[in-house]
Design a protein around this nucleic acid. Structure first.
Length: 387
RNA sequence: GCUGAGGUGGUGGAGUGGACAAUCACAACAGACUGUAAAUCUGUCGUCCGAAAGGGCUACGUAGGUUCGAAUCCUACCCUCAGCA
């Protein structure tokens, strides 16, 4: 069975199915991020209820805690967190390269040393020193046991010099070659095969992006992941980055956008350019800080980035967050009540908001899938992004 | 009524002669939130003018006093709390 079945294409936008040992993913799809084997504040059942099809967890975090041996006992992070569906893991490359909060960027980044062998970094938990290599990332991801895993790469930093970027770009290809080799070995003894995605770097540089994509295609990775800080940073920049390779994306392989943050604007641009799946932390992070997504029917649009701050609701606003949303939160609770929860730092607020935002994103993706199959994606795009 | 403690910005609470428009925290308001070290982070927060630097005005219960200078010292008054009656 192929990993990916293309059902229909409208322009470069495509609707398809990713087949995994743990079920299918109808694409285009939003993949909620469960870094530490939990999509923060929500249970696996709630993930299902909100229409989620898969979960993405992280090599870096789970390697540090609870550790590989613990996860091995559970036969993977999915059984550990009681998620039965398809899963992804990220390679840890991103964390190793960006182990910082923006505020502490300088001091933190100095704690990571990149060598040809791999990345030496210090644990954010206890300060202990670790070496993560492409081989080790594959071995950890083998234990984490996701259906779809990522090659170990070194994301480029826009802050660094051109030479350093070129250096990282070329090293990433060597690391991906090593990732591919180790993955090939490990698959031989696995019952459930894992699909390894090669990571395409290069930001908005057409030469670099195409070289990176050519490389990934040449090694014949089962899937293609698009990385870099230009993905998800801004809808236009995301579009620019994807435009460099959109015409060269193969129809037979799934394309994943790594870290496509933000709201519907960037997602429409990405889907329009052939992205099948993407993970996005802002859906749940914004929920926890009180930013709720709005449908066009609720007044959501480019002007307000499709979002509303819960703190600005009236305390006596009896209406649901959205009049058209069918999530548990909207079917049950009022804006005024959810505002009350946030104002008083009640944990339920973040939970209810997360449920709404995840449901919102999955509803949007379902509408996009349907639209592509009916050749109405352009119409939907215009309808959502009209000014 | 007596004894003791105390009255500071939206709130709690520092400050006990000059560096005070007043530490800090909370609230409020504004903003940010990319492969999640985020239920987090950043900014504003007496008032008026100014883009800013900066300047004016009013303020530490009330009234008066001492002093070059008072939220800080003195006097009187008002009020609050605790204990005793």
């Amino acid at each position: 069975m192929n990993l990916f079945t293309l059902k229909h294409q409208e322009g470069f936008a495509r609707a398809g199915i990713i087949h995994t040992p743990h079920g299918e993913i109808q694409t285009p799809a939003f993949i909620p991020v469960g870094t530490q084997a939990t999509v923060k504040t929500v249970t696996p059942q709630e993930l299902l209820d909100t229409g989620s099809q898969a979960v993405l967890a992280n090599t870096y975090h789970l390697y540090l805690s609870p550790g590989v041996e613990t996860i091995r006992e559970y036969h993977g992070f999915a059984p550990f967190m009681k998620w039965d569906g398809p899963t992804f893991t990220d390679s840890g490359g991103y964390q190793v390269a960006f182990l910082w909060t923006p505020k502490e960027a300088k001091e933190r980044s100095s704690q990571v040393t990149i060598t040809e062998e791999g990345a030496v970094f210090r644990s954010h938990i206890d300060g202990s020193k670790h070496l993560l290599t492409p081989e080790k990332s594959m071995e950890i991801q083998d234990v984490l046991s996701a259906d779809i895993i990522m090659a170990f790469d070194q994301p480029l930093s826009q802050l660094s010099t051109r030479e350093k970027q070129k250096d990282a770009f070329e090293r990433t290809m060597r690391w991906e070659t090593r990732s591919h080799a180790r993955w090939t070995e490990l698959q031989k003894t696995r019952e459930h095969k894992q699909a390894l995605y090669g990571v395409v770097q290069g930001e908005t540089d057409p030469i670099l992006r195409r070289a990176s994509l050519d490389f990934v295609l040449r090694l014949d990775f089962p899937g293609i992941a698009i990385g870099g800080s230009t993905i998800g940073s801004d809808p236009q920049i995301t579009a620019d980055a994807l435009d460099t390779i959109v015409e060269s994306l193969p129809s037979g392989k799934p394309v994943h956008a790594l870290g496509l943050g933000g709201g519907p604007e960037g997602i429409f641009e990405a889907v329009k350019r052939g992205v099948d799946t993407f993970d996005n932390t802002s859906v749940t992070r914004m929920a926890r800080t009180g930013l709720l997504f709005l449908f066009p029917e609720d007044g959501g649009g480019i002007h307000n980035k499709f979002r509303s701050d819960v703190h600005k609701f009236s305390p006596t606003d009896m209406a649901p967050i959205s009049s058209v949303c069918t999530c548990m939160t909207c079917k049950t609770f009022s804006r005024g009540y959810i505002r009350h929860l946030f104002v008083n730092n009640e944990l339920l607020g973040g939970r209810l908001a997360s449920i709404h935002n995840i449901h919102y994103m999955n509803t949007l993706m379902e509408a996009i899938r349907t639209a592509i199959l009916q050749e109405k994606f352009t119409h939907l795009y215009d309808n959502w992004l009209k000014k």
